[in-house]
């Protein structure tokens, strides 16, 4: 068996379709400007349409056109909102495939880095069991909200970060950036579950969050250990993590901004080994990007254009 595989090589059964990873990060590079957002989305319209055809996300595309990408990060999840059920289903499915890739990433680290310190291998092996339980937990939660695995397209961005051939980069990108993001998402999902009175969802996600804090801590500790004697290398690893964090802030959708749909889980992250300076930096770099006001307007423009195209075609 070779060492290091590409994210395109992840094995899935026939229920699953992929979403081009470009779509996950479109908003990360867009100015806070309606025109710019509309243009960025329109540019990827064929990709977006292609990725949702034949999946449960197709009705969303029918309604909004390529602007459907803006429906989710547009506003905080609110149980009273008519789109809440769809938002929750999309989120839980996204988490489910993320957990799957976290399992695959941790497991590959055992094969890809056979000479890493034994304690590192023990941490990764333990993470395999945790992520496997997370996949099982979220498969049950999908059932709980009437979703089938593979109903929505899968973006493989998490595993793409796990493809780094450098163990420090890998744990910085996966364990610190993406599992840190998972902490933010889970904290917000717990808030949603409390607001909607869904005790099953709240308790299950609370347990998963406890594990994720442990995984982020693995990342924090191993990055420190791997880069201990080389500050320049340490800085490169930190920069890599910051870039992943910037991209996966989805243009401020995950940030400390008031209009963010996923706030930063400050307390959880401190427990997981993020320093107050790193958190201040994360707040700063994640806040860049279009405001919810801009996104709402852009969504309107995109929907109008979509309808016009429908009528013309």
């Amino acid at each position: 068996m070779k060492r290091f595989i590409d994210h395109s090589e992840l094995a899935r059964d026939r229920r699953f379709v992929r979403q081009n990873n470009v779509l996950s990060t479109i908003l990360a590079d867009v100015e806070d400007n309606v025109e710019a957002v509309v243009e960025a989305i329109e540019e990827h319209a064929p990709l977006i349409e292609n990725s949702v055809r034949g999946t449960a996300a197709e009705p969303l595309f029918e309604r909004h056109g390529p602007g459907m990408l803006l429906v989710r990060p547009n506003e905080p999840m609110d149980p009273a909102h008519p789109a809440a059920a769809t938002q929750l289903r999309l989120r839980l499915h996204g988490v489910f495939v993320g957990e799957l890739q976290a399992l695959e990433g941790a497991a590959r680290s055992l094969w890809d880095f056979p000479d890493a310190p034994w304690e590192f291998q023990m941490n990764m092996a333990r993470q395999c069991w945790d992520e496997a339980r997370h996949v099982q937990t979220f498969e049950k939660l999908l059932d709980h909200v009437d979703v089938e695995p593979g109903m929505f397209p899968e973006s493989t961005f998490l595993f793409e970060c796990a493809c780094s051939e450098d163990p420090a980069m890998r744990v910085a990108g996966v364990n610190r950036a993406l599992e840190g993001l998972a902490c933010d998402v889970f904290r917000d999902t717990i808030r949603y579950a409390e607001a909607s009175g869904d005790e099953t969802l709240r308790q299950a996600v609370d347990f998963v969050l406890a594990d994720e804090i442990t995984h982020v801590r693995f990342g924090s500790e191993w990055v420190r250990e791997f880069t201990r004697d080389d500050p320049e290398y340490g800085q490169r690893v930190q920069d890599f993590r910051r870039e992943v964090d910037r991209q996966f802030s989805f243009g401020g959708a995950r940030s400390a901004r008031k209009d963010a749909s996923i706030p930063i889980a400050r307390e959880d992250r401190l427990e997981a080994g993020f320093s107050p300076e790193e958190l201040a930096d994360l707040e700063e770099l994640s806040a860049r990007g279009p405001s919810s006001e801009t996104l709402r307007e852009a969504l309107g423009v995109l929907r109008e254009r979509h309808e016009a195209r429908r009528q013309a075609g």
Partner: peptide, 22 residues
């Protein structure tokens, strides 16, 4: 087993291996 988790398409086999790896 760690190397195989990603290249096995059967979901319950992937998750079952997680515990066995540990």
């Amino acid at each position: 087993l760690g190397g195989w988790v990603a290249t096995i398409p059967e979901l319950p086999v992937k998750t079952g291996l997680g515990k066995i790896i540990w």
